[in-house]
Write a protein that binds this DNA or RNA. Sequence first.
DNA 1: CCGGAAGGATACAACGTTGCAGGTATGCCC
DNA 2: GGGCATACCTGCAACGTTGTATCCTTCCGG
Lengths: 338, 338
Amino acid sequence: MATTLHDVAQVAGVSFKTVSNVINDHPNVRPTTRARVQAAIAELGYRPNLTARSLRSGHSGAITLAVPQLRLPYFAELADAVISAAEAHGLVVLIEQTSGGRDRELEVLKSPRLKMSDGLIFSPLGLGEEDAALVTAEVPIVLLGERIFSSSCDHVTMQNIEGARAATEHLLDIGRKRIAVVGAHEGEVIGSAGLRLKGYREALEARGVPYDDSLVAYMGEWHRANGALAMHELLERGVEFDAVFGFNDTLAQGAMRVLQEAGRRIPDDIAVIGFDDLDETRYSLPTLSTVDPGRTEIAETAIKVLMERIKTPDGPAPREIETTFSVVARESTLGTAP
Amino acid sequence: MATTLHDVAQVAGVSFKTVSNVINDHPNVRPTTRARVQAAIAELGYRPNLTARSLRSGHSGAITLAVPQLRLPYFAELADAVISAAEAHGLVVLIEQTSGGRDRELEVLKSPRLKMSDGLIFSPLGLGEEDAALVTAEVPIVLLGERIFSSSCDHVTMQNIEGARAATEHLLDIGRKRIAVVGAHEGEVIGSAGLRLKGYREALEARGVPYDDSLVAYMGEWHRANGALAMHELLERGVEFDAVFGFNDTLAQGAMRVLQEAGRRIPDDIAVIGFDDLDETRYSLPTLSTVDPGRTEIAETAIKVLMERIKTPDGPAPREIETTFSVVARESTLGTAP
DNA sequence: CCGGAAGGATACAACGTTGCAGGTATGCCC
DNA sequence: GGGCATACCTGCAACGTTGTATCCTTCCGG
């Protein structure tokens, strides 16, 4: 059996409440008593029972992070960042995988397990704008991503439009004119794909480059295989292009592979840029230029905002926070026009 | 305020204990009462307070997974598998990142937070065989990996020697004779590097191929950059080789990149095989042959063993379990001798 | 030397749940 | 119809902690 406050109290010769007071750094404990209690704590190797503390105090020091799947590098790196940020504040993180399924996401929101934690950082994929009203739970929520903007939760998101615009401008800056897009979603307006396409178009317009829909590859999910497939399709279409904007790094890498197999040199013939700044982009051949969406900042901000909301649930109105981004130029966009 | 057993009891017109009995499927509750209580539960949207249940019953339905870093793909995929396996048993997973630091790993073992969960799945990196005795905690532990074999915990591990042997044999089978190794650790006997080198040597010996230490690249940590560095060094050394065995996929990919930059064709000039079967090996150029160490099986076995140990802490003696592996042949080892 | 205020420690209750021991009907048997 | 087993339900205690209220010192000023 684990040692309790009572055991410590008995050894120290005080009431168990005094031990509690020592542990919680309450004032009005005489230094000599404090020392005696601390000696007893050390002697017995006492560790507080966090479950009991949690029941009594109403908060657990844990938060939940709900993401689609950790095997997707983007979410793995996000989770890494969130756990690190949480750790810095003494919080522990409990992870739920949703597979990006709408039902499973709703289930997580309603699960009693959620109450084992003090708050939720939620990166939905199945739920959309029309479900905004359903995004509520018995704990405060910080929403991530681009699926839902009109919920009543705090929302931390990257600058998709601006980032995509900057990526496109980067390609234009090195002299590319015909920029293919890999990863568009038919008819999508918000959501990463919709926003990034908007940024792409804005950049073209700002530079007076005409938009050509035949340069845009539409697809379903952003998996590497789809990036490869889309690039095959673009090549078969016979349309000319001198650059590719992959809406995320995974797509860009799938596309790069197909380009290389087809004998196109990167960046000489075709420049390629991605989005997300995954770790692996630093090691591909060639290394992949990309947009760093500020993942660490997203994680830290989410934790900060969530902690504030936990402290004062009826605090300020829900906030919409955008993180800073930057274009990371690597080998895949090296040099100038072909 | 959340609804409690008392609230439900009041609505249903029974004692709160009866509500508890209904929830826990206790016998001796009349169907009509049961129905009435369930109606009240539904009406009020009652959800049990898991913290209170946990305090009372002594277990929480959560387990802890301690890994170095989720940003390392191997651990991300492991965590994914563990969470999925846990989910299938109604368990939720709490993740601690250790950075692979010895002190931090010991800290996790001793942290009171660990007691918020019922057990620990622990993949150490900083701790070694000499620390085996320190691997104890207030909850059952299942150890993963190759760092510690003589602890008193259940241990689930892959077949490193056999897997490495099979990988090497695969290279020999396609006619390669001079197989370079990337990722050896100077003087290591156990640990992934030591075991995999052993498997490599066993395969050579079994086929009567002489072992040549000049083909072996020693290094520190298994990061992609080190794989690249090691390959540079091997090339500079001027030693001839027609195949490379990367001790993990990340190293193999770093090596592949350098080989390609140096103008060597894969697999025509040099065949390459890795270890781990990371998702990304399916998408590299060329796709990377590797050893699938049975990650899903590791996760499921770990969960199963941990649950048994939680149920009966003084059950059978600590078990040493090895998972099944398989060689996955992809493009990087296609064809026969050069 | 007494009254009062602070400091220091304690007692009690509560958080929401489950285990255990009981209690009250109901039905069955003789 | 009384005794007794059975089925159903309830009350109490406890898990280990913290908040509130309270009590007992001690020390100071008058």
